[in-house]
């Protein structure tokens, strides 16, 4: 059993949990994730590990309430237990000295981006972060990302904070002005990652995206998280979750992510008395 040591609301429907998981806290590296199961009936939910404290034996998870699974998770309070937490899963991010790295994060993608940006900064990279959100209220972890970046560009879709527009607008502008980073890391909603990859493609800049397909076991057993990367079938859980953004078949992945949309609705209906 894994106790919730701390729970905070970061933005509407976006929560930060600190969860007791000694072994995972000791071993995890940036870019890795866990799978949790709230109780006997619930689904297995993959979530990226944002931070960890090996001494306290805790890991930090940030999630947005999307479906029934995350709603159930959000209903837990400090001191409650999560039945199962398994990890760390997936390959860690390839953190090395690239030179200049642009970290593009959309929505709650900032959360998983933070440890990567921090790792990149620790490796003496110049980190430029581009953070986007739908609206001002949804911007999270601003201080944290600021602390590891030499420059932070903020965009909101509705213009309530920072630059009005998408993260790709900011990125594109920079690239067009002759700026050529050595690597770009993008984490966020699939259309955003796809747009970032398309933006960098003409410049041939190494672009890493972190994929979040539907998963069951997270150990390579079910193949539910299969994605096409460069025409090859890859399992995001064991081969990823990070892949070359220029090679991913986004349309297929987007389609697969919609697979249980009707079931999700049915499930939520069934739970409303």
């Amino acid at each position: 059993m894994h106790t919730i040591m701390d729970k905070r609301l970061l933005a509407p429907n976006v929560y930060r949990l600190e969860v007791g998981a000694q072994l995972i806290a000791e071993r995890r590296k940036p870019g890795q994730f866990i799978i949790l199961r709230v109780n006997e009936e619930s689904e297995r939910i993959p979530l990226t590990i944002v931070e960890s404290d090996p001494v306290a034996g805790t890991i930090v998870l940030v999630f947005q309430v999307m479906g029934e699974g995350t709603r159930l998770l959000a209903s837990l309070e400090m001191g409650d237990e999560i039945r199962d937490v398994v990890g760390p899963l997936g390959h860690p991010t390839e953190i090395s000295h690239y030179g200049t790295v642009v970290c593009v994060a959309g929505g709650i993608g900032v959360a998983p981006m933070f440890p990567i940006a921090k790792g990149m900064a620790d490796m003496a990279n110049t980190v430029i972060s581009i953070v986007g959100a739908r609206t001002r209220d949804l911007l999270i972890l601003q201080e944290e990302i600021q602390s590891v970046s030499s420059e932070v560009l903020i965009t909101t879709d509705d213009g309530t904070f920072g630059r009005h527009g998408f993260v790709t607008d900011a990125l594109k502008e920079r690239l067009e002005s002759g700026f050529t980073p050595d690597a770009v890391v993008a984490i966020g909603p699939l259309p955003m990652m796809r747009a970032v990859a398309e933006t960098t493609r003409p410049y041939g800049i190494k672009t890493i995206v972190s994929l979040n397909p539907i998963m069951v076991d997270g150990t390579g057993m079910c193949g539910g998280c299969r994605v096409s990367v460069g025409g090859q079938m890859k399992f995001a859980c064991v081969d990823g979750p990070e892949f070359d953004g220029h090679q991913v078949n986004y349309a297929e992945l987007a389609n697969r992510q919609r697979m249980y949309r009707d079931k999700e609705a049915c499930k939520i209906r069934s739970l409303i008395p």
Partner: peptide
Amino acid sequence: RFPDYHTPVH
């Protein structure tokens, strides 16, 4: 046993 159990299958 969906939706009593939350994991869906098609």
